[in-house]
């Protein structure tokens, strides 16, 4: 399957950028002609991944977040969200529903939502080095419209 388009966004880990990041990726992914529900799923997953960088990767500093999005010829979108923050010591434990190190401000449902709203989720992390979250979603092909 061929890559047909790609974008890269780099921004600082300020919470005001959460809305920008999810909206930007959604506008880019709309080239695949998704339904509103599909677009909302992508928006939600991006919001979760970016929020995790802001809250967990850089709890006491402002760091760099990189979001890459690629569209493929099989009508799928791949989204990579990367930080250079604290990292996750045990990724399998972190992916469990309701697991959180964020106290009562967090619900521990971020990874669960990314997993169920996207087709695939891969999390690679090293303590002290950062985290890379890769998500993929195939957009249903609808009959060509005028």
């Amino acid at each position: 399957m061929k890559e047909i388009n790609g974008v890269k966004l780099e921004f600082t880990s300020k919470s005001a950028n959460e809305g920008f990041a999810r909206a930007a990726v959604a506008v880019f992914a709309s080239q695949l002609d998704p339904t509103l529900d599909e677009l909302n799923d992508i928006k939600t997953a991006v919001s979760e991944a970016v929020t995790n960088c802001i809250v967990h990767a850089y709890p006491d500093e402002i760091g760099k977040i990189l979001v890459r999005a690629k569209l493929f010829s099989d009508n799928s979108v791949e989204i990579v969200v990367r930080d250079w923050g604290l990292g996750i010591p045990d990724v399998d434990a972190a992916r469990e529903p309701m697991f959180t190190t964020g106290g009562e401000e967090r619900s521990g449902m971020g990874f669960t939502i990314m997993e169920s709203f996207m087709d695939r989720l891969r999390v690679r992390s090293a303590a002290g080095k950062g985290t890379t979250v890769t998500m993929r979603r195939t957009i249903s092909v609808r009959a060509a419209r005028k």
């Binding site: 928006k43 919001s47 979760e48 619900s107």
Partner: peptide, 13 residues
């Protein structure tokens, strides 16, 4: 118009 899991924590609180 939009809510993510941060909203879950608000509702639980």
């Amino acid at each position: 118009s939009f809510m993510d899991s941060s909203g879950i924590a608000v509702i639980l609180k």
